[in-house]
Protein backbone atom coordinates (compact mmCIF):
# COMPACT_ATOMS: atom_id res chain seq x y z
CA UNK A 1 0.00 0.00 0.00
CA UNK A 2 2.69 2.46 0.96
CA UNK A 3 4.62 1.73 -2.23
CA UNK A 4 1.53 2.36 -4.29
CA UNK A 5 0.90 5.63 -2.45
CA UNK A 6 4.49 6.66 -3.04
CA UNK A 7 4.08 6.15 -6.79
CA UNK A 8 0.78 7.99 -6.65
CA UNK A 9 2.34 11.04 -4.98
CA UNK A 10 5.18 11.26 -7.45
CA UNK A 11 2.63 10.82 -10.24
CA UNK A 12 0.61 13.72 -8.85
CA UNK A 13 3.67 15.97 -8.86
CA UNK A 14 4.68 15.29 -12.42
CA UNK A 15 1.02 15.24 -13.44
CA UNK A 16 0.60 18.76 -12.08
CA UNK A 17 3.38 19.95 -14.38
CA UNK A 18 1.79 18.24 -17.38
CA UNK A 19 -1.48 19.85 -16.41
CA UNK A 20 0.14 23.29 -16.38
CA UNK A 21 1.77 22.66 -19.75
CA UNK A 22 -1.60 21.47 -21.04
CA UNK A 23 -3.20 24.66 -19.73
CA UNK A 24 -0.51 26.67 -21.51
CA UNK A 25 -1.38 24.88 -24.76
CA UNK A 26 -5.02 25.70 -24.23
CA UNK A 27 -4.46 29.41 -23.65
CA UNK A 28 -2.81 29.84 -27.04
CA UNK A 29 -5.13 27.36 -28.73
CA UNK A 30 -8.18 29.12 -27.33
CA UNK A 31 -7.08 32.40 -28.82
CA UNK A 32 -5.48 31.30 -32.06
CA UNK A 33 -6.09 27.59 -32.80
CA UNK A 34 -2.29 27.26 -32.92
CA UNK A 35 -0.58 24.41 -31.07
CA UNK A 36 2.55 25.98 -29.60
CA UNK A 37 5.13 23.21 -29.40
CA UNK A 38 7.60 25.55 -27.71
CA UNK A 39 5.39 25.39 -24.62
CA UNK A 40 7.83 23.02 -22.85
CA UNK A 41 10.66 25.52 -23.28
CA UNK A 42 8.71 28.09 -21.28
CA UNK A 43 8.73 25.67 -18.34
CA UNK A 44 12.47 25.13 -18.68
CA UNK A 45 13.14 28.86 -19.00
CA UNK A 46 11.06 29.53 -15.88
CA UNK A 47 13.02 26.99 -13.82
CA UNK A 48 16.44 28.00 -15.10
CA UNK A 49 15.81 31.74 -14.72
CA UNK A 50 14.59 31.13 -11.17
CA UNK A 51 17.90 29.40 -10.48
CA UNK A 52 19.77 32.28 -12.11
CA UNK A 53 18.04 34.94 -10.03
CA UNK A 54 17.78 33.14 -6.70
CA UNK A 55 20.97 31.05 -6.59
CA UNK A 56 23.42 32.75 -8.90
CA UNK A 57 22.39 36.38 -8.29
CA UNK A 58 21.15 35.74 -4.72
CA UNK A 59 17.99 37.81 -5.11
CA UNK A 60 15.17 37.23 -2.60
CA UNK A 61 12.80 34.36 -3.38
CA UNK A 62 9.69 36.33 -4.33
CA UNK A 63 11.58 38.83 -6.47
CA UNK A 64 13.38 36.00 -8.26
CA UNK A 65 10.09 34.24 -8.95
CA UNK A 66 8.48 37.43 -10.19
CA UNK A 67 11.42 38.25 -12.44
CA UNK A 68 11.54 34.71 -13.83
CA UNK A 69 7.81 34.85 -14.65
CA UNK A 70 8.07 38.31 -16.22
CA UNK A 71 11.14 37.45 -18.30
CA UNK A 72 9.52 34.27 -19.58
CA UNK A 73 6.44 36.31 -20.44
CA UNK A 74 8.72 38.67 -22.35
CA UNK A 75 10.12 35.73 -24.30
CA UNK A 76 6.54 34.71 -25.14
CA UNK A 77 5.93 38.26 -26.33
CA UNK A 78 9.07 38.25 -28.48
CA UNK A 79 8.16 34.87 -29.89
CA UNK A 80 4.78 36.20 -31.01
CA UNK A 81 6.16 39.47 -32.34
CA UNK A 82 9.12 37.99 -34.20
CA UNK A 83 7.85 34.65 -35.45
CA UNK A 84 4.05 34.57 -35.44
CA UNK A 85 2.88 38.08 -36.31
CA UNK A 86 5.10 38.63 -39.39
CA UNK A 87 3.68 35.53 -41.10
CA UNK A 88 1.41 36.83 -43.84
CA UNK A 89 -0.44 33.65 -44.69
CA UNK A 90 -1.63 32.27 -41.38
CA UNK A 91 -1.66 28.62 -42.32
CA UNK A 92 -2.19 26.50 -39.23
CA UNK A 93 0.34 23.81 -40.10
CA UNK A 94 2.94 26.43 -40.96
CA UNK A 95 2.38 28.14 -37.61
CA UNK A 96 2.87 24.87 -35.75
CA UNK A 97 6.13 24.27 -37.65
CA UNK A 98 7.26 27.75 -36.65
CA UNK A 99 6.70 26.90 -32.99
CA UNK A 100 8.88 23.79 -33.41
CA UNK A 101 11.61 25.97 -34.89
CA UNK A 102 11.33 28.39 -31.99
CA UNK A 103 11.58 25.50 -29.57
CA UNK A 104 14.84 24.36 -31.19
CA UNK A 105 16.29 27.87 -31.17
CA UNK A 106 15.35 28.42 -27.52
CA UNK A 107 16.96 25.11 -26.55
CA UNK A 108 20.15 26.14 -28.33
CA UNK A 109 20.22 29.47 -26.51
CA UNK A 110 19.56 27.78 -23.17
CA UNK A 111 22.42 25.35 -23.69
CA UNK A 112 24.65 28.25 -24.63
CA UNK A 113 23.82 30.08 -21.42
CA UNK A 114 23.34 27.26 -18.90
CA UNK A 115 25.29 24.32 -20.34
CA UNK A 116 24.04 20.77 -20.19
CA UNK A 117 24.01 20.31 -16.41
CA UNK A 118 20.79 20.05 -14.44
CA UNK A 119 20.01 22.85 -11.99
CA UNK A 120 18.00 23.03 -8.81
CA UNK A 121 17.41 25.26 -5.81
CA UNK A 122 15.88 24.93 -2.37
CA UNK A 123 12.22 24.00 -2.01
CA UNK A 124 9.86 26.89 -1.17
CA UNK A 125 9.54 25.75 2.44
CA UNK A 126 12.02 23.79 4.54
CA UNK A 127 10.84 20.80 6.50
CA UNK A 128 10.55 17.05 6.59
CA UNK A 129 8.39 15.16 4.13
CA UNK A 130 4.93 14.32 5.43
CA UNK A 131 4.24 10.67 6.16
CA UNK A 132 0.88 9.40 4.89
CA UNK A 133 0.22 5.69 5.47
CA UNK A 134 3.90 4.89 5.15
CA UNK A 135 4.44 6.91 1.98
CA UNK A 136 6.27 10.22 2.00
CA UNK A 137 5.08 13.36 0.30
CA UNK A 138 7.46 16.27 -0.03
CA UNK A 139 6.28 19.71 1.01
CA UNK A 140 7.25 20.99 -2.43
CA UNK A 141 4.80 18.53 -3.99
CA UNK A 142 2.02 20.21 -2.03
CA UNK A 143 3.23 23.56 -3.35
CA UNK A 144 3.18 22.26 -6.90
CA UNK A 145 -0.34 20.91 -6.54
CA UNK A 146 -1.54 24.04 -4.76
CA UNK A 147 -0.10 26.37 -7.38
CA UNK A 148 -1.53 24.24 -10.17
CA UNK A 149 -4.97 24.40 -8.58
CA UNK A 150 -4.71 28.16 -8.24
CA UNK A 151 -3.72 28.52 -11.91
CA UNK A 152 -6.65 26.34 -12.97
CA UNK A 153 -9.10 28.49 -11.05
CA UNK A 154 -7.61 31.71 -12.41
CA UNK A 155 -7.72 30.39 -15.97
CA UNK A 156 -11.30 29.26 -15.57
CA UNK A 157 -12.34 32.67 -14.26
CA UNK A 158 -10.38 34.44 -16.97
CA UNK A 159 -11.85 32.58 -19.94
CA UNK A 160 -15.41 32.30 -18.65
CA UNK A 161 -16.01 35.39 -16.56
CA UNK A 162 -13.99 38.21 -18.10
CA UNK A 163 -14.69 40.00 -21.36
CA UNK A 164 -11.02 39.80 -22.33
CA UNK A 165 -11.06 36.02 -21.90
CA UNK A 166 -14.23 35.63 -23.92
CA UNK A 167 -12.86 37.91 -26.62
CA UNK A 168 -9.78 35.68 -26.79
CA UNK A 169 -11.97 32.62 -27.23
CA UNK A 170 -13.94 34.45 -29.92
CA UNK A 171 -10.73 35.05 -31.88
CA UNK A 172 -10.06 31.34 -32.17
CA UNK A 173 -13.56 30.49 -33.37
CA UNK A 174 -13.70 33.12 -36.04
CA UNK A 175 -11.00 35.78 -36.35
CA UNK A 176 -12.96 37.65 -39.02
CA UNK A 177 -16.07 37.81 -36.88
CA UNK A 178 -13.91 38.95 -33.97
CA UNK A 179 -12.48 41.78 -36.11
CA UNK A 180 -15.87 43.09 -37.18
CA UNK A 181 -17.08 43.19 -33.59
CA UNK A 182 -14.13 45.40 -32.73
CA UNK A 183 -11.75 42.87 -31.19
CA UNK A 184 -8.09 43.53 -31.93
CA UNK A 185 -7.15 40.00 -32.93
CA UNK A 186 -3.40 40.66 -33.13
CA UNK A 187 -3.39 41.94 -29.57
CA UNK A 188 -5.33 38.91 -28.32
CA UNK A 189 -2.79 36.59 -29.94
CA UNK A 190 0.02 38.49 -28.28
CA UNK A 191 -1.64 38.38 -24.87
CA UNK A 192 -2.22 34.64 -25.24
CA UNK A 193 1.47 34.01 -25.90
CA UNK A 194 2.53 36.11 -22.93
CA UNK A 195 0.04 34.44 -20.60
CA UNK A 196 0.93 30.99 -21.74
CA UNK A 197 4.66 31.68 -21.34
CA UNK A 198 4.06 32.98 -17.82
CA UNK A 199 1.99 29.91 -17.01
CA UNK A 200 4.87 27.71 -18.19
CA UNK A 201 7.31 29.68 -16.07
CA UNK A 202 5.19 29.20 -12.96
CA UNK A 203 5.21 25.43 -13.56
CA UNK A 204 8.97 25.43 -14.08
CA UNK A 205 9.63 27.45 -10.94
CA UNK A 206 7.46 25.19 -8.80
CA UNK A 207 8.73 21.86 -10.07
CA UNK A 208 12.48 22.45 -10.41
CA UNK A 209 13.28 21.76 -6.71
CA UNK A 210 11.75 18.28 -7.16
CA UNK A 211 12.67 17.22 -10.69
CA UNK A 212 15.71 19.42 -11.37
CA UNK A 213 15.80 21.30 -14.67
CA UNK A 214 18.09 21.16 -17.68
CA UNK A 215 18.09 22.86 -21.06
CA UNK A 216 16.56 20.02 -23.11
CA UNK A 217 13.63 19.08 -20.91
CA UNK A 218 11.23 21.07 -23.09
CA UNK A 219 10.20 18.73 -25.93
CA UNK A 220 9.24 15.87 -23.63
CA UNK A 221 7.24 18.24 -21.43
CA UNK A 222 5.54 19.62 -24.53
CA UNK A 223 4.64 16.14 -25.74
CA UNK A 224 3.20 15.13 -22.37
CA UNK A 225 1.37 18.40 -21.93
CA UNK A 226 -0.01 18.06 -25.42
CA UNK A 227 -1.23 14.55 -24.58
CA UNK A 228 -2.92 15.99 -21.52
CA UNK A 229 -4.60 18.68 -23.61
CA UNK A 230 -5.71 16.16 -26.27
CA UNK A 231 -7.00 13.84 -23.58
CA UNK A 232 -9.07 16.57 -22.01
CA UNK A 233 -10.28 17.85 -25.36
CA UNK A 234 -8.25 20.73 -26.79
CA UNK A 235 -9.39 24.08 -25.53
CA UNK A 236 -10.90 22.74 -22.32
CA UNK A 237 -8.92 23.84 -19.30
CA UNK A 238 -10.39 21.44 -16.76
CA UNK A 239 -10.07 18.54 -19.19
CA UNK A 240 -6.39 19.12 -19.74
CA UNK A 241 -5.77 19.33 -16.01
CA UNK A 242 -7.44 16.00 -15.36
CA UNK A 243 -5.64 14.60 -18.39
CA UNK A 244 -2.32 15.83 -17.01
CA UNK A 245 -2.87 14.16 -13.65
CA UNK A 246 -3.98 10.88 -15.25
CA UNK A 247 -0.89 10.77 -17.47
CA UNK A 248 1.40 11.68 -14.57
CA UNK A 249 -0.02 8.97 -12.32
CA UNK A 250 -0.03 6.28 -15.02
CA UNK A 251 3.54 7.17 -15.90
CA UNK A 252 4.66 6.91 -12.32
CA UNK A 253 2.89 3.56 -11.83
CA UNK A 254 4.39 2.24 -15.07
CA UNK A 255 7.86 3.30 -14.00
CA UNK A 256 7.34 1.73 -10.58
CA UNK A 257 5.66 -1.55 -11.42
CA UNK A 258 6.80 -2.28 -14.98
CA UNK A 259 9.98 -0.51 -16.04
CA UNK A 260 11.17 3.05 -15.81
CA UNK A 261 12.11 2.97 -19.49
CA UNK A 262 8.49 2.35 -20.44
CA UNK A 263 7.08 5.44 -18.74
CA UNK A 264 7.51 7.85 -21.63
CA UNK A 265 5.54 5.55 -23.91
CA UNK A 266 2.49 5.77 -21.65
CA UNK A 267 1.45 9.26 -22.66
CA UNK A 268 1.93 8.55 -26.34
CA UNK A 269 -0.05 5.32 -26.22
CA UNK A 270 -2.86 7.11 -24.39
CA UNK A 271 -2.82 9.86 -26.99
CA UNK A 272 -3.03 7.38 -29.86
CA UNK A 273 -5.92 5.53 -28.24
CA UNK A 274 -7.78 8.77 -27.68
CA UNK A 275 -7.18 10.03 -31.19
CA UNK A 276 -8.46 6.72 -32.56
CA UNK A 277 -11.57 6.40 -30.45
CA UNK A 278 -12.47 9.79 -29.02
CA UNK A 279 -10.83 12.55 -31.04
CA UNK A 280 -12.78 15.20 -29.13
CA UNK A 281 -11.05 14.06 -25.93
CA UNK A 282 -12.53 12.35 -22.92
CA UNK A 283 -14.10 15.53 -21.65
CA UNK A 284 -14.47 17.33 -24.95
CA UNK A 285 -17.95 17.62 -26.32
CA UNK A 286 -18.34 16.66 -29.93
CA UNK A 287 -20.82 19.40 -30.69
CA UNK A 288 -18.44 22.06 -29.47
CA UNK A 289 -15.63 20.59 -31.58
CA UNK A 290 -17.93 20.57 -34.61
CA UNK A 291 -18.79 24.20 -34.03
CA UNK A 292 -15.16 25.19 -34.22
CA UNK A 293 -13.91 26.18 -37.61
CA UNK A 294 -10.64 24.33 -37.50
Amino acid sequence: MSVFLQFLFSGLTIGAVYAMVGLGFNIIYNATSIINLAQGEFVVIGGLLMWLFSESMKLPFLISALLAILFTGLIGLLMERLTIRPVKKKDLLLMIMITIAVSIVLRGLLMFKFGKDPYTYNPFTEGDPINIYGAYIQQQTLWVIGITSLCIILMYLFFNKTMLGKAMKACAVDPTAARITGINVERMVMISFVMSAMMGAVAGIAVTPITLMEYDRGPMLAVKGFCAAIMGGLGRGRGSVIGGFIIGILESLTAGYIHSGAKDAVALIIMLIILFFRPAGIFGSKTIIDLRRF
Binding site: M163, K166, K169, V173, D174, T176, A177, I180, G182, L291
Partner: peptide, 23 residues
Amino acid sequence: PEGRMLFSHLTVRDNLHLGAYAF
Protein backbone atom coordinates in the same frame (compact mmCIF):
# COMPACT_ATOMS: atom_id res chain seq x y z
CA PRO B 1 -21.80 39.36 -42.30
CA GLU B 2 -22.96 36.79 -44.78
CA GLY B 3 -23.42 33.47 -43.00
CA ARG B 4 -23.84 35.35 -39.69
CA MET B 5 -20.37 34.47 -38.33
CA LEU B 6 -21.54 34.10 -34.76
CA PHE B 7 -19.24 32.97 -31.98
CA SER B 8 -21.03 29.69 -32.19
CA HIS B 9 -19.65 28.06 -29.04
CA LEU B 10 -20.40 31.04 -26.80
CA THR B 11 -23.77 31.90 -25.30
CA VAL B 12 -26.26 34.32 -26.81
CA ARG B 13 -25.48 36.81 -24.05
CA ASP B 14 -21.71 36.54 -24.59
CA ASN B 15 -22.18 37.06 -28.33
CA LEU B 16 -24.13 40.23 -27.63
CA HIS B 17 -21.67 41.53 -25.07
CA LEU B 18 -18.76 40.88 -27.42
CA GLY B 19 -20.60 43.03 -29.96
CA ALA B 20 -19.90 45.94 -27.63
CA TYR B 21 -16.34 44.81 -26.88
CA ALA B 22 -14.78 47.92 -28.36
CA PHE B 23 -16.88 50.07 -26.03
